[in-house]
Write a protein that binds this DNA or RNA. Sequence first.
RNA 1: GCAGGGGUGGCAGAGCAUGGUCAAAUGCGCAGGGUUUAGGACCCUGUCCCUUAGGGGUUCGGGGGUUCAAAUCCCUCUCCCUGCACCA
Length: 974
Amino acid sequence: MPDSIDFKSIERKWQEKWSEARCFQSNIQKGKQKFFITFPYPYVNGAPHVGHSYSCFRADVYARFKRMQGFNVLFPQGFHATGEPILGAVERLRKGDEKQIKSFKDYGVTDAQLEEFKKGPEQVARYWMQRWRDDLTLSGISIDWRRSFITTDLTPTYSRFIAWQYRSLKKKGYIVQGTHPVVYCPHDDSPTGDHDRLVGEGESPIEYTILKFSMPFENESLILPAATLRPETIYGVTNIWLHPKTPYVRAKVDGELWLLSEPAVRKLSDQGKKVKRIGPLDLSTLFGKTCINPVTNEDVLILPASFVSSENATGVVMSVPGHAPFDYVALRDLKRKIEKSTTNSLALEGIEFPRTILKQILEIHPLGLISVKGYGEFPAKDAVEKLKIYSQDERIKLDKATSEVYKHEFHQGQLSKRCGKYAGLTVSSCKEELVADFKGRQLASNIWEITDEVICRCTTKCHVKILENQWFLKFSDADWKQQVHSHLKHMRIFPEDARIQFTNTIDWLQNKACARKSGLGTKLPWDNQWIVETLSDSTIYMAYYTLSRIVNEHHLTAEHFTDEVFDHIFLAKNTPQEALKNSTLSPKLLEELRKEFEYFYPVDVRSSGKDLLQNHLTFFLFHHAALFDSRHWPQGIAVNGYVTVEGEKMSKSKGNFIPLRNLLNEYGTDLTRINMVAAGEGLDDADWKTETIAPFRRLLEFLYSTIQHPPTGGDGYGREEELLESRLNRCKRDSMEAYDRFEFRTASQCVFFESCHALRAYLRLSSKVNVGLMRRSLEDIVRMIAPLTPHMAEELWSMLQHEDFAACASYPSFNNEKIREDLEQEEKVLTDVASDVARILKLAKVKKPRLVRLFTAPPWKRRLLQTAINRAKETGYFDYASVLAVALKDEELKQRVPEVQAYIKTLAKAVNYYKTNPLPELDESQLLAQQKDVLERLLSCPVEVWAAENVPADKDKDGKARRASPFKPAIYVE
RNA sequence: GCAGGGGUGGCAGAGCAUGGUCAAAUGCGCAGGGUUUAGGACCCUGUCCCUUAGGGGUUCGGGGGUUCAAAUCCCUCUCCCUGCACCA
């Protein structure tokens, strides 16, 4: 029984020893190759949980592996406070928000600490930063803490660094100014990101075209701005819809008189238009009148419809009954009502219309302007009938019909001759041109709307605002993209499948707003009202790690770091004298900073979750390409999937956001690490499952007790020893490759299961253990598991009487020549025999055999197999006839044609296999004879081995010997 | 809609690039046996269906194709997951 291992005290012990020995502090070492690995700095508004720990453990496993491969590994860790959430949390705490309080308390925060948080964001950030640091230390992450820092003004030198970055980008023309539509809360007076929304996550701004219908009104021209996503249908407009009951107003919009729904006034004025509200407008003066279609110049009636929403766009809708299901149904409803009545006037939607107008309404007919396969002249009609829509109140069905019709018309639809110069074109191909054309002729304008309702956390309804003078990173720049593309080709990407996603992201990236007006962060150096936005200030900070040790140790301040200093350190653009022109930094430190950067840069690999692939990781490449010499661009990126817990996505509501510390307390670090890191591979999600911990624990206990109570024996070296060496060398080779490719699930299989199995099999089979080999094997295994379970490895390493650290030992090297395919094939023959025997025993219902007799195949069978294989290699397939022909030439075989025929027929499968795999060289009879005692032990009965061709008749009464084939001896049991 | 990934045995998860010892690694679960004072752990065996001698049958989301041979290649259908930005 293994002594119960106290993982936790072992872990604390080694963490202290590592720290005392400064194992993970990385300094320039001349002649030793460096390896720089990073894990994205976490945002400090909480403690690490399972999700974070996955990428982080992966980075650490790799760091440790590389260290054991002899690299001078730099693994630093900083923290991130830029942005809104910390401010938001403070605000919510001050308001006494229950959710916020709970979310902090779940991580073990005390009431006193919560009070402290209310003082401001710095208290929050610093607290969580320390908590992260503690948890990572408890996790045994091999970080050089001397280089730690936190973003924003809390680290003025870092802000200086960001200022340098942005000034440099601007000089190079990568920062441009422009306008940008955002979802906006009028109450908070700020953009409303996904996380700030009560309703409407994932909704985004979309641009409607406004078509300016017009009519005379009090000696002026009144514009009816019909908003649409389908401007091409202007050619099929039959009327205008207004809501009969909601208030409309008159407003001056860029000098014109417009009719607008009340909410549209604010929207348009937030979207860069000059809007002046004049006053309410009584719609009864409009209904039944006509206005002019700006494109076709046709007169169209103005009619009431209750499906029109004053909340959406302008509140003015153009009716295209041939192609818009809503319009079709609304018009149909009106006409039905009119047809049923005989009175002189009639109220429609609460508006009284005289007979003359009613007659005009009856004369309105849908117009067909887009022809689509699968639909008749009026697709809207077809769709409405197909879905059996009876009234304009059936919104869900109508929405479905609308999107269906639109999808087909957009991609396949062809505009008809009604559409003037666009006739014959598809909608998708001419839409842009058409809009530009109408806008150019002042017939059209635009309004932004949100794809669906968005309500801010403050419960205010949001709309789209166009931000003016927004600063952008010019990711659309073709040359910039090209640089990143060509660099990507030279990078290592783990897993390789992720490369295509980077390629696509680089192409897809557009200009990105890089500054915000609120939140924590570094001010844009040339425009103080803006703060550099979160994702934009975290793109090249890895370079700052090369400076931060010196900054921290020498208490350097922002004043020391001018742009000239950074230019010198990072780019060697100027002489030290020029660099220090406006700085009080000492020349000696300047030189040290420069050397540190030159030595450690570039980043060799960055390990991160796939959620950052399309933003941070790609920005990281762009910014490096823009700012640094190409030899300092990132060398590798490792991406991993998300973490699920017991098969379920993590979420606050499910309460399965397990804090990392809980796991550490429960299972200890090593088991948490290995169970996490082996839970997934590649881009797949990693599932944290408690039940998979036990097998790892057992294996560790097995190693522990084997080392604690080593088996006694001698120094004999034979087949069993060779086999063990073969298997372990295979493990060493495979694990090294797996580690190197960030495939830690595979690596863990190899170093835990396979190597321990090999060791166990050896202990079981060998009659006298080779003590020296045993020790060497254990040393190999301990070092193989060291990156995954570093603390236990350290303990075991010391139990093996090593004075140095396993963490700094070298990864065991493998010897290809010791990998003995032949031995392992032989082993397979033996286990196959054993399992065949077991099978027979079961079928024959023999419980305990008294005797097992094995008959090895006669040489002619092997010869024929070889013949068939050779033939198959020539022709590519198993050729029964030609093998038989060869056999018939043989005088001996001619005597027993039926047996030969039967045998050849059984060869098909084996031949197909050996066509591409080497045929074992081994001599079966010799092998079985040699291993007789092993087989006897396995089968626990006496075993006899006979060559089939020499077996005396009384030893083979049932004629079993004839069944023998190469590597599959015939078996007789009694 | 655009882009990327995926559907394998009771479960998790390999294998599919280079088609063939693939009824499919490994782990978990389950069953039987051994060991043990007992439990745990450990070791052996089995775990799609049929079969009293190692045999046969049907499987890798559905359908079709290529091939002597397909979980693996091609086509098609279907279902699922993820991202789509100013947000960390």
